[in-house]
Design a binder for these strands. Sequence first.
DNA 1: GCGTGATCATAT
DNA 2: ATATGATCACGC
Length: 224
Amino acid sequence: MKVPASPPINTDDLLARSHAIAGLSLGELAKMANINIPANLQRHKGWPGQLLELWLGASAGSKPQQDFPELAIELKTVPIDACGKPLETTYVCYAPLLMSPGITWETSSVRNKLQQVLWVPLEGDRRIPLAERRVATAVLWQPSAQEDAQLREDWEELTEMVLLGKVENITAKHGDMLQMRPKAANGSVLTDALGPEGQRIRTRPRGFYLRKAFTHNILLNAFD
DNA sequence: GCGTGATCATAT
DNA sequence: ATATGATCACGC
């Protein structure tokens, strides 16, 4: 088996690729792709995701769009425990802290990113050596009306706080399903935002993240 | 610095 | 034991 040379031509093609690697270990996939496997993820936190991008033919790079623009599908790898429960929250996208007035849920980058996601669960238990962790069966997901409504509620709450200049009051406890948390190289990175008196302030960049319970439900519903 | 890929590690 | 807040690497 070799890594694909071009992006998937359609959704079935992408699903076939994901099924072809299900059950294989990261070590096997790295070896066949001729790339080195890091000793651990401490300094290579994005490595599993990048390996899967390679195997599924996602266009590499850091574009603020979906991984498969032609298919309008976003790729997310999610580490799971032995019971299939996510071990980590899922990063969605960068959170704009200086927004155009007309921003709505419908036009938000969160909703755009989450319109269609190929979830690729992966054994993530830290007791399993990285090379031995296996890829599980992928799940192609589109938010239900209920999920969309839940996300919208959280997004609107968080966005309203940002628009009111209360970004510094936001913690990861806000939002039932969608959180806003720091997203930067380190704590000294600063960006512009709106302060409580309408003034410009400097604050840590933020990102949107999906809580584990939300992702867990997506994986559970896939077996209905 | 922004945005991608995320996981780490300490407080709780 | 777990979630929050912090952090790591890379391209541009």
